[in-house]
Every structure is written in C-alpha cells, then in structure tokens.
Design a protein around this nucleic acid. Structure first.
Lengths: 203, 203
DNA sequence: TCGGTAGATGACTGTTTAGTCAAGTTCGAG
DNA sequence: CTCGAACTTGACTAAACAGTCATCTACCGA
C-alpha cells in the first residue's frame, strides 16, 4: 500500500496549509494529519519543520519556474514578456481561487514577509525566491531599454518599484479576496513604467 | 513605585515585539517579560492575547492618525496631500529604522496580511485600519479629480492600485531593510496616477 | 481608622508544541 | 530464502503555550 509518496504528501500538505493560513499558525501535527503521515515518518524525511518548509518553498517554485521561463523567454520582445506576465498574474490567481476557494497571492512572498526578521533558513529561502522572481523583471526591463522600447534609466530600481507594486497588489488581493484588483495590474503597471499602455503590435 | 502604567507597557511591548517579528512568533510570556509585568497582571488588564493585540493596533493607529489628518487636511490642495504623504512614508520609516534598527514597514499591514485567513478579532481590526488608511487616498484622489488636477476615472480603483503600490513598497522595504526603495515612491506613485511628476506650484 | 478596590504576584492547570526513539513492517537485490 | 535498507508506527519527552486563581499589597475616600 504505502509507496514512497508520503514525503510528497507532506510537502503538499505544508504548501496547502501554510499558503492558506500562515507559517506560524501551522504545526507539524497539523501537516502530518493532513498528509495522513505519522510523526515518526515526518522526521524520517525531514530534519525539522523548517527543513520541510524550505523544501516546500523550493518545490512550489519548481512548479512556477518553467511557466515564468516561458513567459519571460528571451525569444519574445521584452515588453511582450511583461504584458504576458501581467496577464498571467490574474489568470493564475483565478486558478488558485478555484482550487483553494480564495485568492492567496504569492506563496513565498507571504512566507517571506512573515519570517524576515528572524534570519532562519526559511526566511533566506523565501528571500532567495523573491529575488529570483524580481530578476525576471529586471532582465525584461534592461532588454526593453536596450532596444529603445523603454526610456533609459536604472533597470534595477525600476524593477524594484514594479515588483513592489505587483507584490503589493497580490497581497491586497489576498487580503480582500479581490481578483478585480489584479486585473488592474496591466493598466497601472504600464503607467508606473512611464508608458501610456501596452506595446503596440505595429507592422 | 508601580503606577497604572503596566497596561501601557504591555501595549508598547506588544507593538515592539510583533512589529519587529510577527504576530505568530510572539508569546504572552515574551510580552510580559519585555514589559516587566507578571502573567496575572496581564490577564487583569486584557481578556486574552488577541484582546491585547487589538488594543495595540488601535493604540498604534491612534499615534498615526493625527499625522495623517494633518497631511491629508482638506485645507491643502489634494495633490499636495499626496505629495506630502509620499514624502512622509520614507521620513517615517527612517525614524522607525533609527528607533528599531530596521525598516519595519506598516504595523497593521504586517499583522493583517499574516492573520487574514482565520477571521479573528485581530484580523478584523487590522483590515479596518487598512481600509481607513486607503480612504485617505480615495478622498484625495476624488478631490483632485473634482478640481481637474487629475484625469477623471474611478477614484476607488485608483486608490486601490496606489495603495497596493505603497503597501508593496513598504513590505519590500521591510524585507530588504531598504530605505532607498521608499524614496522612489513619489516618482513611481505619480507615474501610476498617470502624471509625469509632482504638481506644479504655479503662481 | 477602616473598608473597598485597583493592581500585583507567583504558583498552578491543561494543552499543544517540536522533536525522539526503539521496535516494527515492507520490499527489492543478491 | 535472506539480509539490509527504506520506511512506518505509536508511545514518549521536555519545553512552551494560553489562561486561571487565591492571595497579597497599596492606596484612597469616608
């Protein structure tokens, strides 16, 4: 009966429970119960609660990464990457809402902003993933400037501001279970980049 | 020796500890120790941990409210209110950093985004205060549109987006202890509102 | 001087927490 | 079949947790 998927069930249970509530509110016992795995097995697979959570963050990122790689593909015009990313955010959260019953925002961002202050492995991992995500924006903005599609300026600072807006919108959407706010991201996003609207498909 | 300020010390300890770490990571014992108050006294003043936290949120808001009232005074031109608010954010967080050693972002926003999912009194209070803050923006935007200083549009939606950006920037600033990001708020804020820059003081 | 009350105290309860461990079971390779 | 490794189990610990309570103290008005 028992296959080697107890580990996977624990990871998924951790993602589900922490994403829908918070890191501090989820206990090892709760994760075990949800995963239908006994305490002893938990510590057979993971050294600690934090060890599991770090693994859960990585696992979740592993599912998002290929999607982002496709969206931010270098074979796409840089502004089109951003346009797709903006659109992706609300589509993705609509899926999340269908699956979990609520808009949940960004998983590692929620964990990260809860845990930053105590420098644990969890906080480090969450920050690492946030930075990785921000770098997608940075690259797209740099490429856009390089081909003159965006006025010159510091792409790192621009990416920071844009990223702040996106994560803020995701958090607000989580708090108010509000998909509509996410649909406004493209409009405001382009404005924040100093553009009137999405790139035109001329020719 | 002991005056009636044990209650105040408990409130301040709760603000300090929760703001610098998180709601879930702070115990009643820790609050009591920091406030130099015994457990029994805690429950003399407060019915529960949550009761104290709600009071702490209210108390903290009570210190910010007069400042916001001044900044968003109706006797000021609406765009100047926003300009002052943008400037206030980084000034304020510089103070916070001087006091606490780190940029901490917005207190009730940090608590709120951690607690939203379980509908407790704490979550309700944090959301109430977030909404109160957003309403300052709404009013200023509506007034700005009324006097033609801002292009027409839905002021509620615009306030939501602007608020998302501001809270996102505060959270990023907290995560990365980054004041510079907050200094970029005016630039990006005006862009997001569809304006090239701050209002001109003509004549 | 007296009595009442607001506040202080520390020992207490019962529960939940993360984490441990010795003794199992299952199963595939040799 | 046999052995060992991977995995499972449930009972266990020690600490931390929120919350309780009877008792004490200090002060203030009558």
């Amino acid at each position: 009966m028992s296959r080697g998927d107890a580990r996977d069930r624990l990871i998924q249970a951790a993602i589900d429970l922490i994403w829908t509530s918070s890191y501090g509110a989820v206990s090892v016992d709760a994760i075990c119960e949800r995963a239908q795995v006994r305490k002893g097995s938990f510590y057979h697979f993971f050294a600690s609660k934090d060890d599991l959570v770090v693994t859960a963050l990585d696992t979740h990122w592993g599912t998002r990464r290929p999607v982002l790689d496709e969206i931010f593909s270098a074979s796409r015009p840089p502004l089109e990457r951003l346009q797709r990313y903006f659109a992706h955010i609300s589509e993705r959260q609509a899926e999340v809402r269908a699956q979990y019953g609520r808009v949940l925002g960004c998983f590692h961002h929620a964990v990260g902003s809860e845990c930053v202050q105590k420098p644990t492995a969890v906080a480090a991992k969450a920050q690492e993933l946030s930075l990785a995500l921000r770098r997608y924006l940075e690259t797209a903005l740099r490429d856009a400037q390089a081909e003159g599609a965006l006025p010159p300026g510091d792409p790192v600072a621009a990416a920071k501001s844009l990223f702040a807006f996106v994560t803020g919108a995701l958090t607000q959407a989580r708090v108010h279970d509000d998909l509509e706010l996410l649909r406004q991201i493209p409009r405001t996003g382009w404005l924040a980049l100093g553009m009137a609207g999405p790139p035109q498909r001329s020719t």
